[in-house]
Computed example of a mutant assay.
Amino acid sequence: MPPAESITSVLVLWGVIGYLLGSIPSGMILAKVMNLGNLREIGSGNIGATNVLRTGNKKAAALTLLFDAAKGAIVVLAARLLAAEDAAQVGALMAFLGHCFPVWLRFRGGKGVATYFGILLAVSWPMGLAACVIWLVTAAVSRYSSLAALLTAGWMPVVVGFTDRGEMFVLTATLCLLVYARHISNIQRLRKGNETKIGAKKAESEA
């Protein structure tokens, strides 16, 4: 973690802001506005960009990806500008939790991958780009979105540990654990060999 610069009340404030911003269900809102149907009744039933893509609307999926990533990035940049780096990382973690467990959806949210990338890019764009590269290479080779997310989350604490961004280690390690927890069903399908590949028409998994 970065040096403690903010008082407890400031950390709590940015934690709340991060959670509320992260809990905005971008995919659900876009699906409703663009008349794409109820995401809970489509594909995996999740609210992320992967499931929005299953509606057949690539524009909606791209916008969902962008907005979900922006939720993580905005809170980091705002907290860094108005408070300090410790508040930025607290806000980032809570934005991720907000996306995964939004109070408005009875705590049934997405798996947080887009928000994860938005957070990393905002905290340290070189680390964010490294994460994007790991995801893209893994996805291109394996064709599994979930595997790409899992390997990216798993490798980032290691990558951070070998750089001068050691203050990101606790954040990336915590996010790694959360990403794995949100992908338990995907891990089980990967082990059984029946996880759905990127581009498959019928999909059951959500990254």
Rank of each mutant, 00 (worst) to 15 (best):
M1K: 03
M1R: 06
P2R: 06
P3H: 04
P3N: 06
S6M: 01
T8K: 06
L11F: 00
V12D: 01
V16G: 08
I17A: 10
G18F: 05
S23I: 05
S23D: 07
S26N: 12
I29D: 07
V33C: 12
M34W: 08
N35H: 15
L36F: 13
L36T: 14
G37H: 08
L39A: 04
L39K: 08
N46Y: 08
I47G: 07
I47V: 15
G48A: 02
A49I: 11
L53Q: 12
L53N: 09
R54P: 05
K58F: 08
L63I: 15
F67S: 04
A69H: 03
K71S: 01
G72F: 01
G72R: 04
A73W: 01
A73F: 00
L77P: 08
L77N: 08
L77R: 11
A78W: 07
R80T: 14
E85Q: 11
D86S: 06
Q89W: 09
Q89I: 14
Q89S: 03
G91E: 02
M94S: 10
A95V: 00
F96G: 06
G98T: 08
C100D: 11
P102E: 05
W104C: 11
W104S: 13
L105S: 02
F107Q: 00
F107M: 02
R108G: 03
V113L: 09
F117S: 03
L121P: 07
L121W: 06
V123T: 13
S124M: 12
S124C: 13
M127H: 09
M127R: 02
A130M: 13
V133Y: 12
W135I: 09
T138Y: 10
S142E: 06
A148I: 06
A149K: 00
L150W: 06
A153T: 09
A153E: 02
W155I: 11
W155F: 15
V159L: 13
F162Q: 07
T163A: 11
M168A: 09
M168L: 14
T172A: 07
L175W: 01
V179F: 05
S185M: 01
R189F: 09
L190S: 02
L190N: 03
I198S: 11
E204A: 10
S205K: 00
S205D: 14
S205E: 13
E206S: 15
A207Q: 02
